[in-house]
């Protein structure tokens, strides 16, 4: 079939479409050139956007102007099949030799498949950690323990004098500074102002607490000077260090666990045990 001679409207639409596709091609060339010249994210993005926008405009004008829009109807058979057909299909399954009627065999098959299915669950266990520490236990234990020295972010052991007043110093267990549950911080506070003693005790106002928020585990890194409060940046829980690091605002419910410390014979700070409670967020078997 031949197309009827185009009307002026069609001709102008065709011109616009060709123009749009040419713009698109120019965008593609521009992208290639930008890339070739060393690439600039902005220009690359703009060129590709122009290339695809050209395509889009061309296709949209084509769809709107040169082909019929609307005005068609398609019938809908509906989804209730003729009863006879439904009955015939059902009869296939109800035939005497139909496997679906061999209940005994089906039960045996079901048993075999269930066994296979259960067996297939076993390898999932390999996804659990290799070391055989049970997960709840792993959450309770941290690298801290009696005699573990406190080091700063660079791995240098700390003396009590290295913690100035009103400053938060991040401390880590020597030998395992990257452990996820170990980060702690040391601060020097005025013991006179304690309304409740720190859980882990203090050395003349020097106190060490777990850095992990008891809400969902973010490091509480914002120390509000003078107030004795630390703030968690994730959901704004704040803890009052003068009152045993009690949660005073926001969604956290438990105080920060403390770390008991002493000064070792070498003059460096060291822990005398693990945190007073598992650090970070709560879990079912948390004591």
């Amino acid at each position: 079939m031949r197309r009827p001679t185009p009307s002026p409207a069609e001709e102008s639409a065709s011109r616009r479409i060709v123009g749009a596709f040419l713009v698109s091609a120019a965008g593609a060339v521009g992208f290639a050139v930008t890339y070739g010249l060393g690439g600039d994210t902005r220009w690359e993005g703009v060129c590709l956007a122009v290339a695809f926008a050209g395509l889009a405009v061309g296709l949209a004008v084509w769809a709107r102007r040169l082909v019929p829009v609307g005005g068609y109807v398609e019938e809908h058979e509906g989804f209730t099949p003729p009863p006879a057909e439904q009955a015939m299909t059902a009869a296939e399954f109800a035939a005497p030799d139909s496997p679906t009627r061999r209940y005994g065999l089906l039960a045996a098959l079901g048993f075999a498949l269930t066994a296979l299915g259960v067996a297939a669950l076993f390898p999932l266990r390999s996804l659990l950690p290799w070391d055989r520490v049970r997960p709840p236990r792993a959450l309770k234990d941290t690298p801290w323990g009696a005699g573990v020295r406190l080091v700063d972010g660079t791995g240098r052991p700390l003396r009590p004098d290295d913690v100035p007043a009103e400053t938060m110093v991040a401390v880590f267990p020597e030998g395992d500074p990257d452990a996820g549950d170990a980060p702690a911080f040391a601060v020097r506070l005025d013991p006179e102002r304690f309304s409740r003693p720190p859980a882990g005790g203090h050395l003349g106002g020097l106190v060490v607490w777990s850095m992990l928020c008891t809400h969902a585990g973010c490091p509480v890194r914002l120390y509000l000077k003078g107030t004795g409060r630390v703030l968690c940046p994730c959901h704004q829980s704040s803890f009052d260090l003068l009152a045993g690091a009690r949660a005073v605002a926001g969604p956290a419910a438990r105080p920060l666990p403390g770390l008991p410390i002493e000064v070792g014979p070498d003059g460096f700070l060291r822990a005398t045990g693990d945190f007073t409670a598992p650090p970070g967020a709560g879990f079912w078997s948390r004591p």
Partner: peptide
């Protein structure tokens, strides 16, 4: 094509 155009514009700019 519109979706790609908008996404690349956003991705670039």
């Amino acid at each position: 094509a519109w979706v790609l155009a908008v996404l690349f514009a956003l991705g670039g700019l």
